[in-house]
Each structure stands twice: as structure tokens, then as C-alpha cells.
């Protein structure tokens, strides 16, 4: 469970979030909505540890009941307008790199298993083919593969479906289903929630929260 209490954030004197409290429960998707500028992306970057909150607490309870120390150990963030992939490196080395940073084993077999799911396991695609030559959808799929390989319990997804085709969306649903069943937490910002309707979805409207 991710427990957020009285979270506040100000950017250059402008209050963006004030005293926001909510919970993200395991097995459920928290869908964050609100008009432009209501602080959706800011909230995501706060939860990801890119920005520091002006006030309030963010607490994640490990299965043992203890609170996790470092936000970055349990969160994997997928930003909206970028995939955070090294363009000059191929798919395998990208995934291997990010996995090693989390101190996870990075054998070819485990990475290829996930790449296969995302339809990127072709020998001419996974290796010696720089990611910068990928299409938009392929890059997004690779970023989602990294998400799956991160083995973190808390996923922050900002417009995850951008650029995905029908097959990609299906794979995404499968992955999400597995993640939720394993007791994972998912927080999503997305304009298109039709593919998510089959999951237990809870809405958090930032504008309403700000008024309340």
C-alpha cells in the first residue's frame, strides 16, 4: 500500500499541490485525472523521486509491514513524452543496463523472455539495431518491457498507451493483470481508459481534491 498524506508542492512560488492525501491499494489501479496544469505529471515526478515535496509524507509499506526507506527502490516511472532509452544502444543492452542498475541479474534468457512478449525478440531487432532507429510504438514497447523487468511493486505510468497498437495494448493488459495479481500498485495518468476498464479502477481527480 502506498500511503500519501498531506502532500504539498510548490514550483517557483506557485502552489501546484496542496495537502493532497490518498492511498494506492494493491491490486487496484489508481487513475489520476484533472485538467491541464492540475499537477498530474508533477504528482508523478514527486512519487518517482524527481522532485522533493514541500510538505507531507509518501510512505510505502513493504509486505513485511515496514516502511520502505528510499522511494526509488520500489518505484518504476514511465514518463509521458519520453521513453528514457539510449538511442545509440540496442534493445538488449538497454534493458540489461537498466536491470543492472537495480542490482538484478541480467541474463540474456530473462531479458529475451520479456522481449518476446513485446514482439521485439527478432534477432535483427533485439541486437545490433540501435534503438534510435525504432518506430514510436517499438520504443514505447521497449520502455514497457523495462517496466516489467524492473520488478518493482509500484508502477507510475504517464500515458503508457501512447503509440501502442491493438496487439501492444493487449500485451500491456496482460502485463498489468499479472502485476496486479502479484500485489503490485499501479498509478496511471491516461486520457484513454477504455483498455483499462476491465481492471478495478479508482479515480482520483486532482481538481476536486484541490477544491475539497
Amino acid at each position: 500500500m502506498l500511503d500519501i498524506k498531506l502532500l504539498s508542492f510548490r514550483y517557483q512560488f506557485k502552489t501546484i499541490l496542496s495537502q493532497l492525501s490518498f492511498r494506492a491499494v494493491t491490486g487496484e489501479i489508481l487513475h489520476i485525472t484533472g485538467p491541464n496544469g492540475s499537477g498530474k505529471t508533477t504528482l508523478m515526478s514527486l512519487l518517482a523521486g524527481l522532485r522533493k515535496e514541500a510538505g507531507g509524507t509518501i510512505e510505502y509499506r513493504l509486505p513485511s509491514g515496514k516502511a520502505a526507506e528510499d522511494r526509488r527502490t520500489y518505484v518504476e516511472y514511465l514518463p509521458a513524452e519520453a521513453n528514457a532509452l539510449f538511442g545509440k544502444m540496442d534493445a538488449m543492452s538497454n534493458l540489461r543496463f537498466w536491470r543492472k542498475l537495480r542490482n538484478l541479474e541480467a541474463s540474456d534468457a530473462s531479458i529475451r523472455a520479456v522481449l518476446k512478449k513485446w514482439d521485439l525478440d527478432h534477432p535483427l531487432v533485439r541486437q545490433n539495431f540501435p534503438v534510435e532507429s525504432f518506430s514510436t510504438g517499438m520504443k514505447r514497447r521497449l520502455a514497457l518491457a523495462r517496466l516489467e523487468l524492473s520488478e518493482t511493486p509500484c508502477w507510475l505510468l504517464d500515458e503508457p498507451l501512447y503509440g501502442l497498437d491493438t496487439k501492444g495494448i493487449e500485451t500491456f493488459q496482460l502485463m498489468l493483470d499479472e502485476h496486479l495479481k502479484k500485489g503490485g500498485i499501479t498509478i496511471i495518468v491516461s486520457h484513454d481508459i477504455t483498455p483499462l476498464e476491465r481492471f478495478p479502477l479508482r479515480r482520483l481527480d486532482l481538481l476536486q481534491e484541490a477544491r475539497a
Binding site: R72, V75, E76, P79, F86
Partner: peptide, 17 residues
Amino acid sequence: EPDTQDRVFDQLRTYPI
């Protein structure tokens, strides 16, 4: 420079490095 592309640098900052 390579880290500024595609917001890799920010992603690295969200990792426990």
C-alpha cells in the same frame, strides 16, 4: 550529452543509484 536525450538523465535519477 547522451544522457540528455530522451530524458535518460531524469530516469537515472529515479533509479536507486
